[in-house]
Design a protein around this nucleic acid. Structure first.
Lengths: 213, 213
DNA sequence: GGTGTTAAATTAACACCGTTAACTATTATA
DNA sequence: TATAATAGTTAACGGTGTTAATTTAACACC
């Protein structure tokens, strides 16, 4: 009932703990199944307190997403050290898929759920900044490979190439997340599906015949 | 207030009109944003009447989905007449993508939304029946092509191949549906993305070097 | 030390949601 | 004509996101 917080630092702490609680519940039970009241109860506050830190549920969701985008991007960033361009693309795909499959509910929130016609400018992420935007990293390395002449001669748009690679990996991951439990499909092993998507796409896009698996 | 319906036929009619109203609203505003009360109001009934025809919202949703699956499958079925196997695969992909992009909210419901751990056996669709199951059709033609020796020699699992092709097309469509309006991505033309995904995948999977676009 | 001000947190309330129970009015049948 | 079944209704329950009004405590200042 009293203000338990006066310092700006403590305020940040509470904000973070709201985000944490929300993230845990979202991951555990999915997005729509979690109420503001539950999130609040988990950290022993009343629901209305959340509104002192986030405008509404959508904004809270967006904040959780932002953190996840950063986490994904920073994971990717490590991989960007690899010297070989093709190996780098492959490692990006692998890392991206790992993130998706290990955080299916985050991934769903981030890449499988259309939100406000377009994400308003509420997000704190600097899109295009390779340190914060995983897609920008893929775009960058594909661009490098393109300039090195590694792609088929009839391909003239490196952004289109990057988007195709992204879509391929995303397709495997998102089908697995959405329908992986469906009994009526005899899913092949998810590793095999990812592997084949990677190799087939690269084989189809690269000038040189066969990349090393 | 009175029973406006006595014959079994009229009962079917009402059921169909509920499905229609639900579909329209879902397509218009998305799934979660539509309430049972709204659906009912649209056909001038009270909300509880819907429960005489469908166990709950989930079941109504499932019924709408079932109809869409059938529609998709029957669209695919026409294409299966094409004599050339590769052309058939390409046409399947094209038709699938058309359906997805023209019915984004249906598609979201069908392939981008994980529901009950697995879709219970409530569905009326006969999975595996090529007349009712679009995936079964793709599987079938890929199997044929596999047996005709059209794929790379190191590929030994035709189901894995089919799932990879599906994932590729699905990846392009679902990214478009979920993020197509996002301003921070300079999306290439959707037709070009579909085209490249098709040609690159086939190029990477087929034994013969280049399929005809 | 008393005073006002400000900020954090709470309770109460609103309008809506999916769903169930109880009820009403009509029809078919006996 | 009485009875049973059925199609539809209203009322209600517990839950949702969110807002308004209110309490409580800490601070700044005279």
């Amino acid at each position: 009932m009293p203000p338990r917080i006066r310092s700006e630092q403590d305020r940040e702490k509470l904000r973070a703990s709201i985000l944490d609680a929300a993230r845990h519940l979202f991951v555990e039970r999915g997005i729509d199944a979690v109420s503001m009241r539950e999130i609040a109860k988990k950290i022993n506050y009343s629901a209305t307190t959340l509104y002192n830190h986030f405008a509404d549920k959508e904004a809270l969701l967006q904040a959780v997403c932002d953190e996840d985008f950063l986490k994904l991007a920073s994971g990717m960033h490590q991989v960007m050290q690899l010297p070989d361009l093709i190996a780098r693309i492959q490692a990006l795909g692998k890392g991206y898929a790992m993130f998706a499959l290990q955080n299916p509910n985050h991934y769903r929130l981030m890449f499988m759920t259309p939100r406000a016609p377009c994400n308003p400018d509420i997000t704190k992420i600097q899109q295009g900044n390779t340190e914060q935007d995983a897609y920008a990293q893929l775009k960058h390395v594909v661009q490098e490979a393109f300039e090195a002449g590694l792609f088929r001669a009839d391909l003239s748009d490196s952004e289109l190439i990057a988007q195709t690679i992204w879509a391929g990996i995303h397709g495997v991951c998102s089908l697995q997340i959405a329908l992986g439990q469906e009994g009526w499909i005899q899913w092949a092993d998810i590793e095999a599906r990812l592997q084949l998507m990677q190799s087939a796409l690269l084989q189809g896009l690269l000038r040189q015949p066969a990349p090393v698996a």
